[in-house]
Simulated scan of single mutants.
Amino acid sequence: MEQKEHFHGSDLEKIEKIFGIKKENIISFSANVNPLGISYDLKEELPKHIDAITSYPDREYTDLRRAIGDYIGIDHSNIIVGNGSTELISLVTQNLHPKKALIVGPTYSEYEHEISLEGGRSHYYRLHEDENFGLNEQHLYDALTTDIDLLVICNPNNPTSSQISRPVMRNILDHCKEKGIFVMVDETYVEFSENSEAITSIPLTQIYNNIIILRGISKFFAAPGLRLGYAICGNHSLLKEMESFKNPWTINSLAAIAGEIMFRDKRYIEDTKELISSERKRICTILDRYQSHFKYYVPHANFILVRILDDELTSDHLFEKAIKKGLMLRDCSSFPFLDNKYFRFCFMKPEDNDRLLDVILDDIPADDRTN
């Protein structure tokens, strides 16, 4: 079957229907979800709170916001929670009404979608392959014209796994402040970064009023089904406006309690960081042996973007080979500025990573393969 449709990491039902593989038997390297599964403490403690669904959650979610504040080192008054990061992106755009947004990409498509729903236009600041998809700071400043009112940055970025340091982010905020541009930073993957405390822009929210940071529990805490996201912003007037647009109780009682539990599970957090760091280094070392066939871009998140250098091999070919073995990688040809020579996969458990690498490297001639 020729694979023409582009599948998201959550499209397991579609995969099941098209390829005849039960979704329970698919290992998704496309979803970028923590391979350890849900928090240890959450698995043990959440069932004890089942009776919480008999009452409404706290409308202000005070305990949840305090737990998040303790986790990220910020006062809970600077935090707003939402039904996943998607609701928060929507709330930001509903309140800012951006007429023209600049999105650093290739990146997640939902930003452009939400901006368009508010009647705004999106333009892309392109990250270039010949610069390894790193941010060219000066070129970005040249693109920040006065008619732009919103800058959108995913950091670390999906799908490139590149990241921006906090000093550079501060420079960006200074330039945006001068031109009246608001900055939305999506930090969905920052907790996977090798030195996340030095990368996160959360401390900058205490200095600048033109930044909001989005985070969630779908990826790092492996709980996309709970639909819990949060945003950090020092601009309290904006937070108040966002709250006024929200429907009440968009987070259910169990999700709120789950958040309080998982953000305090230090053993799980450390185990996750250790596993991802170890596998990231190991997989890069393996791919280094095949530089004439594949080029990867230094990853900072829990996934890696790879470019195919062989003329006859394409990302959809690799997708089909992998999915027939119950392994789902991401064909990146649907991302802006990428084509069918790019694919992405996240770091799972070592034995699963080895299975996927066997598929990826299978097309390499035997003489070029090393142990």
Rank of each mutant, 00 (worst) to 15 (best):
Q291K: 15
C346Q: 09
R344N: 13
S253C: 08
L88T: 01
G119L: 10
Q163W: 03
T370G: 12
S253L: 09
I27H: 02
S237Y: 03
I27M: 11
A222H: 05
A67W: 02
D174R: 07
F345H: 09
I164W: 02
L361Y: 01
S122Y: 00
L238V: 04
E241Y: 00
Y61W: 04
K281I: 15
D147S: 06
D174Y: 01
G216D: 15
H8W: 12
R121E: 14
L357E: 05
T160C: 13
L91S: 04
F220C: 12
E197S: 11
D362C: 08
I364L: 08
R369T: 08
Q3W: 00
F221W: 13
L102T: 02
H128N: 15
F343I: 08
D11N: 06
Y124R: 05
P35S: 13
F29Y: 11
I38H: 05
L144Q: 08
D310S: 15
K99D: 04
K219L: 04
N171G: 09
E178F: 03
L173P: 13
S165G: 10
L12W: 01
P336E: 01
K341E: 02
F343V: 07
D358F: 00
L275K: 11
K240L: 07
K22C: 08
R280K: 14
S161M: 13
I50S: 11
F345N: 06
D41L: 14
